[in-house]
């Protein structure tokens, strides 16, 4: 089948929208990996959480995901209490901070169950969605990865897989098996020449760009951003500066869940998402991150964008083989990387 310009433009637009999301996920995966050596397999679940929570709020249903947040908060409080009791020093967690962290999900739940969430303005719904999901990042790090922070990479990978599987199970339990989509941010659409561009598409790409710029500014111009970079570059050096690996781990997981949840909110109007959609989406983010050699942010973003575009065009040319084509992309990059890397990381 011959491809003509209008079709190519439509496919290109589709590829860029998906690629923008994959890029955000690739960046999140890269960040978590460089700081903690954890391969963020659960990244996609936060995308699903974001989309499904928005859908639940818009349907006026109580956002039951908040109970996962509460359960994690309780578990974290117990873990912190144990640490407080067994280490006599001035602890890193004060008792009052512990109480605030414990009360937060319950206060949030009270709000969610009593407010008419379906009629709230969309930005407020999005804020609530983030308020539920983003704190889970540091909690998950604290509970499942901090205790094994210096374990070999394989153990970290297995833990990540276990967390992912559990989150999928929770997702099914909380959201049910059906897919959901949300209302678009606005109904407007624009004509650029012969191509119809929906405003949601502009939102996705625009937000992705804005987020990437914001991340870049954060890492290059703020002290906390530099501290995170430092923790990724040299953990010992960072520790000596008082940049604790725990802080770095929690911060990177927080950014990962933020990016994941935002991605979910952005694509939910375009794509129906269900409890098990997350994994495949994050896998494509992984391909992007691997193209970036698991080191370079610009390459990872570019790689993810390429994945989106290749996916769109492969779906046109050979839809039966689309998945094969997309995932086989990793192979040349893995080969190239392993041949040109002269400074090998100690663990990998």
């Amino acid at each position: 089948m011959d491809i003509d310009l209008p079709i190519a433009l439509i496919l290109g637009q589709d590829g860029i929208i998906n690629g923008a999301i994959y890029a955000l996920l690739a960046l999140a995966i890269l960040l978590v990996f460089t700081v903690t050596r954890v391969l963020m397999i659960p990244q996609g679940e936060f995308v699903a959480f974001g989309a499904l929570t928005m859908a639940a709020l818009q349907a006026g249903q109580p956002a039951r995901l908040v109970w996962l947040l509460a359960a994690l908060a309780v578990a974290e409080a117990i873990a912190d209490l144990i640490v407080l009791r067994t280490r006599r020093q001035g602890a890193q967690v004060t008792f009052s901070a512990l109480l605030v962290k414990l009360a937060y999900p319950f206060v949030l739940a009270a709000l969610l169950y009593n407010l008419p969430t379906a009629t709230l303005p969309m930005p407020v719904q999005a804020m609530f969605t983030l308020a539920i999901i983003v704190p889970m990042g540091p909690q998950i790090y604290r509970l499942f990865f901090q205790p094994i922070a210096s374990a070999p990479s394989l153990i970290l990978l297995i833990a990540a897989i276990a967390v992912d599987v559990s989150l999928v199970g929770v997702s099914l339990f909380v959201f049910g098996p059906e897919s959901a989509s949300t209302a678009p941010f606005s109904e407007a659409s624009f004509e650029f020449g012969s191509v119809n561009v929906s405003s949601q598409a502009l939102w996705v790409v625009g937000s992705a760009l804005a987020l990437i710029v914001a991340l870049w500014l954060f890492f290059s111009h703020t002290l906390h951003g530099k501290a995170l970079r430092a923790a990724a570059v040299n953990r010992t050096g960072a520790t000596l500066m008082g940049i604790s690996p725990v802080f770095a781990g929690k911060a990177s997981f927080l950014l990962a869940t933020l990016l994941g949840a935002l991605s979910g909110i952005l694509i939910a109007p375009i794509t129906p998402i269900s409890f098990d959609s997350g994994f495949v989406i994050s896998l494509k983010g992984f391909v992007g991150a691997i193209i970036g050699g698991l080191i370079s942010y610009p390459l990872a973003a570019a790689g993810a964008l390429a994945v989106g575009l290749i996916e769109a065009f492969a779906a046109f040319w050979a839809s039966s083989y689309k998945e094969v084509i997309v995932f086989t992309l990793i192979i040349p990059f893995l080969l190239w990387r392993s041949l040109t890397r002269h400074t090998l990381e100690e663990e990998e």
Binding site: L11, V280, A312, K322
Partner: peptide, 21 residues
Amino acid sequence: NEKYQRGDTSVMGQVMKLIAA
């Protein structure tokens, strides 16, 4: 005739091909 994965987030390519036929 086109195929897609259940978990796909977009089927634009397949749809364009179908419409063109």
